[in-house]
Amino acid sequence: MITADRLSLPSTPAEWTLPSSRKLAIASLIVIETAMFTIFVVAYVFYIGKSLVGPYPSEVLDTPILSTICLLASSLTIMMAERAFKRESVGGFRLWWSTTILLAAIFLGITAAEWKRLIVGHHLTISTNLFGTTFYSLVGLHASHVIVGLTLLTLVLVFSLKNSIRRADGERIEMLSWYWHFVDAVWVVVFTVVYVVGR
């Protein structure tokens, strides 16, 4: 048998650093999710103005300014939370982290109210017309990502309140914030396509 240690020849590099597997995996996940969202966005754009029956987007959609502000602001607050984490300020971390959760919850609440208005008030369901099908799929796909993010954020807050988060978990927190920034970035695209171009 060739023993492996005989391979340790003299001039191996003294410093051997590799990218973090965790970062690679989350970056990969973001690429995958981007590809998936792209297809739903393409379907939405392709079907703009092709509904055979109403209600049409121009009649029923309102621009969700408040929820957009909340979601975009949550990207800033999660960044503040990360900074607090790096400063090892537990109170600051919990404060900014809870604010992020609150903003995400407000976003979801406004989306829920919008859907209720559309379904009950305007009788627009996923099967009504092409607009309904593509609207609920795209916005719903995004909202489901917000729900996943919200669940993870809440989990971290619970861990933090139980004092079971250590310094070594910093990269995990950072990865969650990457995901959260991605969900926000997707909203910018969804907002543009659905509420600006599609109307």
Partner: peptide, 18 residues
């Protein structure tokens, strides 16, 4: 799946789908 279970119209040519 949305088409088949929720009555969506993505690929339903009768409702303008492609």
């Amino acid at each position: 799946l949305i088409d088949r279970f929720l009555g969506g119209n993505f690929f339903n040519t009768q409702s303008g789908g492609s």
